[in-house]
Design a binder for these strands. Structure first.
Lengths: 333, 333
DNA sequence: TTGAAAGCGCTACCAG
DNA sequence: CTGGTAGCGCTTTCAA
């Protein structure tokens, strides 16, 4: 007994009108008499009818679906980005089709699939698609937009990101300006390309300021790894007087390590993070950090959806981050 | 110059075969000669053709879309649930259409919209839909599944949740068994119905154990609120010797408050959370908590997708949580 | 304002 | 194995 979903024809029959009339009754600015509209709406509710969005999509040859591809929604920072993106997308009348992929290669597999759903745009976070794959999307008329990571080399799609390298430079500036002189780095460059840019900006600026790195630890982008890295750094002979951690998660780990070693923050050791997730403002951490401009990134991204790559040529946008002073770095005078 | 997307007909023409052949070449177990399949695939890549999923959905009268409606993806606990759900859904070949709603009423508005996309199931987290709205979905043949919150009264859909009340009872058991005798409650019952169940179980069990509540604070479900509540409780004349916080977020706030007041945890005051989010295991908090069985909830939820409510009658499933002993509660002997 | 008819791009069923 | 044909449920001309 597979109950066939009620269609516009069913409603038309009950309301005693044509199928076209039903369609019009559900189309905002269509020319229908108020009388027929009422009759149709009534028959519709009676039968439990609702227009089939799939059929509508097919005939309109366009839909309000957008693809969102991301690596890890549980990642605190990404989840904030996602929330913001979802809110704004829905506010603009779009429906996000969400894909989670874990491995790098899966991004390239998933994009063509997303494309088949005739989405109006594809947003990618957590990795960068293969240029060829991106090109094929663009070719099909679908803008592809990489969020929050910079793409080096030839890449045909939209890229809109926080200026991670500038963030790294800011970090060096602030730490040195606050009086820290033996600065070490806790990072995850091996796993995350965004961290590479942060490290690059940081080390370059440090050099410009006449400082040398007092230590370096690379690991996973996790609290545990930050903890372990900081433990090594802070219990070594020549203890650093500040740690630049290339993400807040790493910084939280470092802070917990400093605490465990009985060090006073920031007097004994300053800690600077990157991202400015919600937790950074918690009194338990009160983390000084480099704030990523999530809102600006999302706003900028939104401007691409619905615009064919043919008319709106792919652009690369870099949004500047800024320093947020809290209690884990010395206060500059 | 609106470049019409290439269709199966275009490919058929180039490959010198019929449209049916093209369709077959893209259908896994169809009967096509290897020769034609090759020719078609080649013509397809040449033209940049990919089957239109929308059209396919329409004709197949079923699709692999599922609706996921949630309140706050940035909520640490929900984001874990979401990640898990997404992973398993994709693993099973489904495509999640994600909706974020903030206000209670919006849930009822959004469900009919989701329904229009002919989704195979709808998962709701963060609120409970109006029974009538749920019924209309069920009526349309789409299972609706409320995740992680219990529904009181008449409700026609699936409900699969952690047994929050049992979790509350466990909390009382563990705290008392560990030797805490002046136990206060930090919660957010005013805003979250899940917390209500936790509180109910907790207070009832406490009573059964012959204990009385040593304090009670209600507020927002945030770190800030937990901090403020604990501050009030712990600086009052008759200081509690343990705090049951109905979520980990509240507990983190309470822990920060205890630390700020110079209290030793758990000697001076024990703290017990609820959820067991990742952060609870961080050494900085090392929070004892009640673990929510996210995996079990998701597995159970998955079994409903694709099964018509007509054949699989709506069920209510309650999954038991368990206690996780860490460093913020006294160790029972 | 209304209804009839022609598809949207595809799959499924039929003969061949 | 293959090509024609008939729709999926809807919107949209086009006449009336």
């Amino acid at each position: 007994m597979s109950k066939r979903r009620t269609t516009a024809d069913d409603v038309a029959r009950v309301a005693g009108v044509s199928r076209s009339a039903v369609s019009r009754a559900f189309t905002p600015g269509a020319s229908v008499s108020e009388d027929t509209r009422q009759r149709v709406r009534q028959a519709a509710t009676q039968l439990g009818y609702a227009p089939n969005a799939i059929a509508r999509m097919l005939i309109k040859r366009q839909n309000n679906l957008v693809g969102v591809v991301m690596s890890d929604p549980a990642n605190t920072f990404l989840s904030h980005l996602l929330t913001r993106l979802l809110d704004r997308l829905q506010g603009a009348g779009y429906f996000p089709l969400l894909f989670r992929v874990s491995r790098r290669e899966d991004f390239d597999t998933v994009l063509p699939t997303v494309l088949q759903y005739q989405v109006g745009a594809i947003f990618v976070t957590g990795s960068t698609p293969n240029p060829q794959v991106a090109a094929s999307c663009l070719n099909a008329g679908t803008p592809v937009c990489v969020l929050n990571r910079w793409v080096t080399g030839e890449y045909p799609g939209h890229v809109i990101s926080c200026d991670h390298e500038l963030g790294g430079r800011l970090a060096a500036d602030e730490l040195v300006r606050a009086g820290h002189r033996r600065i070490a780095l806790v990072t995850s460059v091996g796993e995350l390309s965004t961290h590479q840019a942060r490290v690059r900006g940081f080390t370059r600026r440090l050099q410009e300021l006449g400082q040398t790195l007092a230590g370096f630890e690379d690991g996973a982008p996790t609290h545990d790894s930050g903890f372990a890295s900081a433990m090594r750094l802070l219990s070594s002979g020549a203890r650093p007087d500040a740690l630049f951690c290339t993400s807040d998660m790493l910084a939280f780990g470092a802070l917990d390590a400093a605490r465990k070693l009985g060090l006073v923050v920031p007097a004994d050791v300053g800690v600077l993070g990157f991202d400015d997730v919600e937790m950074a403002a918690w009194p338990g951490y009160d983390l000084s950090t480099i704030h990523q401009p999530v809102h600006a990134v999302v706003e900028s991204a939104l401007s691409f959806v619905g615009h064919s790559p043919a008319t709106t040529p792919p652009s690369k946008v870099l949004v500047p981050p800024h320093f947020v002073a809290r209690g884990t770095t010395l206060q500059k005078r």
